[in-house]
Structures are given as C-alpha cells and as structure tokens.
Design a binder for these strands. Structure first.
Lengths: 271, 271
DNA sequence: CGGATTTTGTGCACGCATTCACAAGCGGCT
DNA sequence: AGCCGCTTGTGAATGCGTGCACAAAATCCG
C-alpha cells in the first residue's frame, strides 16, 4: 500500500531531506561565497528532523515579535526561553540549517529570520485553497493569520448550491467539482479540508488531481493519498481527548494522594 | 522556571503516568476479578507514552465507526490499517492499557471501546469553555463534534461588549472578567483559547484561577502556566509552514532530478 | 483429542531525538 | 597584543519510540 499519512500530532520518527542540491556533482555555488554564514557545508548531513522543522516555525514567530521590538541580536538562551524550549535544542535545530551565529554574541535577528524563511520555503508565497465552507471553513477563509504569513487563500469550495458564488472573505465559493481545474490553473500549493468526514476522501482525491501536493486535513478521517502527497492532520476532538486523559490522570493522582494521606494520618504518620 | 508547555505538534519525548493506583500498598482490587481482560497487571509498567495516547484516541474513533456498521470483533490488522498505523504499534499501544484481545480472534469492539474511553477519562463528561468568540471561537462554539464526543461546551467568553449576552450556539457570551467565577462554579475542566495572541496569556491566567487544569491554545503564543496545568497548542500557521517546507523540499527534489536527467541525457546516458 | 491456523502480546534491537558538556571562536578590556 | 568572559556549535551519551519476529494462547477441524 503506497498510501501514507503523517499524523499532525506525531512528529517523531521520520526525517526529511533539507532542500539542498542533492547530486554529488560540482559543489553547487550557493550564491554567496562560503565565508561566514554558510547555508550548510554542502556535503554534510542534509536532513532536518521533522520535529526540528516544527520548532523552526516557532522560532520564526518569536523572532518576528522580537524584531518588532527593535531587537538586533538574540542569544540562544533568550530565544529558547521565549520559544519554550531548551537552548541546546534550539542551537542544534539552527545548526541543521547552517551556522549563522556569532560566538560570544548570538544571532542577528534579521539574518536568522530570513534563513529560516528560506528553509521553510516562505520566500515564495504558497497559495491555499479551503474546501468546505462551514463554520470552520468560514473561520479559515477569514483568518488573517494566513495571508499575513505568506499563505494567501486563493480559492474556496463547497457542495452547497446556496453557497456557490457567494463571496466569503472577498472570495467567491466554487463548486467542489471544479477543484481539479481551478487548483491547476491557479497553481494552488496547499489544500485545506474542512468538510464533513464523509466527503473528505473525495475532496482530497480531487485536490490531488488538481496538482496539490500538500493537504491540511481537519476532517476526522485517515486520508489515503499517493506517496508524493503530504498530509497533516488537525483533529480537534482528539486534542480534547488527550487533554481529557490528563484530567483523568491528575484526578487519579490526587485521589491516590488523598488515600495515601488518609492512610498515613490514620497510622499517626506525618506527611 | 516552573512553566512548561507541551507543543501540540510534538508528542515525542515525555511519558505520562497511567491513571492507575500508585501506592505500593495492598494490591488495589479493580472491581473486576483479575481473570481475563485485566486493566493492567497492577505492578507492571504504569506509563502510557504520550504518542500512544494520541493514537488511542484515533483508534476510538475508528472503533465507533466500525460499531455503527455492526462489527463485533476486529483484528489488530484491520484496526491498524483503518487507523493508518502499523499493526504491531497498535497492539503495543493497546497493551499499555491492558490485555483485552483474544488470541486467534481479535478484539471485541465494544470492550475495547469502553476500555479506551475509561483510560482517556471519557466516562465522565469534560466541560469545556471557549474564550474568544471571533471567527474561530464561533466555529468552535457551534462545532458539533465536541458535545457529540463527551465535551459539552458550557461557557463562552469575550471582551467585546457588543457580544456579551448574545447567544452563540445556544449559549450566552460572558465577559472574560467572569472567567474565574463561572469556571469554578460550573466546574469547567478544559479551557479553549481562541483569542488574539496578545490576550491569550491573561485569559489563560484567569482560566487557571478558575480551576481549569487543561488548556487548548489556538493563539500563536507560548503560554506560561503553573506546573500542574497541561497545555496543548494548535497553531494553524505553523502547520501550514511545515507543509510549506515540504513543498519547497519537493520542488528542490524535482529540480535536482531535472538537472540530473538533463545532465544524464546530455551525456547520452539512459536514466 | 491433537494438530493446524490464526492472532495476540512482548522481548529485543535499531534509530531518532534530546540533553549534556566542552572545545572553538569572537569581542571587549586592559 | 594578550587575556578574559561569553556564546555558539557539536561530539557523545542517554532515553524513548518504533518495528520485527516469535512464543503463547485460543479456536476450528479432522
């Protein structure tokens, strides 16, 4: 079976290759002479752990906040605490994409920002299509965070004939039968599925048909896709269930602490 | 610093304890005699990896779909492919919560369902409050998937005076200043933060003040919380950026394949 | 009743990710 | 110029999660 899906809540095992030139041919000139701040040694480890990619995106957001406040340089320690991680981990994450720091000083905010953007492919805008204009789809279509971060929403789709043609967030809704055509002609890079679970697989197939290689799936189903297509899943119910597990666990712990305390006090012990 | 946050997109390292009795005291009678289908050996490994918890929730959803179609038993293989995972991993995940399978047959759908529900703390309803009734908050308040899965939304909050008192999804919106009181009196278990990033920390502090121990955070900020509070994060922009990384990587791969092919063909080689 | 068949449960090994600890490197100060 | 303090970058170690492969168990059938 060539259908795989990477769970959005499980960024552990598989590593992904860094977008660097691959062939063993002539050492690709990287535009900039290999002085200080090289993209990467060009022959060394060419993989970025998936987990590191997720954190790089977090660093990027923290960095943009720091830049707004006029920061010019950051130490790994500052950036790490702001991002909620260990400083060693942060340095290792950054080392995956190159060496841009200055020892004894830290990182230049703007340099680091643009390098992370480069690796994450944010230098060019990634066009997004949203399928399923229900509650969530409406929210996503109107969500300001997407275009503001280089992800312009350029197409909307739904089955409901009452919605077709109605503009949502300044963009008319198209019928899902037009997904392949419109995605192909508008060069949609990322498809967001916010449909009911029953419709998700069919919608996904049409997106793939339209040349979309990356899918963000909000429907609670496991999507089957060809091997070259990347799926990330966001399942709100599952997030709540994970939290529920922690609620239950904490309740148990408190309960067992109570019984332990009760037993201890009935024995005259001091806790 | 005693403030930690578990990233929703990174469920790898830390393990969490199973909600089992902890003390080394008299072997707790589990209500059911320790015949077939014991919760767990009561002295063996008492931890469920966080990643396994997330998958258990997925199995639960798949199981409920199978139950609707009248299935009585499932093999690990069936369930695994339906959930998009390896069958060995599935069996190991289930073994964390006990031994409920029958060798040569499989698992009873209803037994497995109720046991997973028990471990995930879904036997009792977890009340949810949604803070920030913007686009996303509206969607969450109206989202049918929550109450249908044991997560009734029981309180809504916002700052906007125009929204206070307006019913959204059948529930009136309260002011965020009332978060501590209302959460405490209604015994809210889980708080969902769908506010702008600037307001998120203050809202979170008030939720904690109201006795909420678990938070689902949609705002793109790292929340600081006391140690006993569990935070999960869902950041849509970061999900897109991770996909963007894969778009870029694939583009690079294709480009390098093209150059390789071009080089090969210019050399007269056959690819 | 015994063997064949099926499927669970798990010991074991491998690989990835995280963390530690330190050498290398840079800037500033005397 | 040379030393000192600070911070990066990374080798090495540890721990966790995953997947394999097989023994144990249960059912079915002859």
């Amino acid at each position: 079976m060539a259908r795989v899906q990477r769970d959005g809540g499980d960024d552990s095992a598989p590593t992904t290759e860094l977008p660097a030139v691959r062939g063993q041919g002539p050492p690709a000139v990287n535009g900039r002479a290999n002085g200080r701040g090289a993209p990467i040694p060009a022959d060394k480890a060419r993989v970025i752990p998936e987990a590191a990619v997720a954190r790089l995106a977090v660093y990027l957001r923290v960095l943009s906040g720091m830049a707004e406040q006029g920061a010019v340089t950051v130490s790994s320690e500052e950036l790490a605490t702001a991002a909620g991680v260990n400083s060693a981990k942060l340095r290792k994450d950054i080392s995956y994409i190159g060496t841009y720091g200055t020892r004894g000083v830290g990182y230049e905010v703007d340099v680091l920002t643009s390098e992370i953007e480069r690796v994450l492919g944010l230098t060019r805008q990634q066009k997004v299509a949203v399928v399923g204009i229900g509650n969530l789809g409406h929210a996503l279509a109107n969500y300001g965070g997407f275009p503001g971060r280089g992800f312009p929403v350029e197409a909307l789709f739904d089955v409901d004939p009452d919605l077709i043609g109605i503009p949502v967030g300044g963009l008319p809704v198209n019928h899902i039968d037009d997904i392949p055509d419109i995605c192909a002609t508008r060069a949609i890079a990322i498809g967001v599925i916010a449909t009911p679970p029953t419709a998700a697989q069919a919608v996904c197939d049409r997106l793939v048909e339209g040349g979309v290689h990356c899918v963000l799936n909000f429907a609670p189903v496991v999507l089957g896709v060809p091997e070259h297509v990347e799926v990330r899943k966001v399942d709100l119910a599952i997030e709540l269930q994970i939290l529920s597990f922690h609620v239950a666990r904490n309740a148990e712990q408190r309960a067992s602490r109570r019984t332990a305390a009760a037993r201890a006090s009935s024995n005259g012990e001091v806790v």
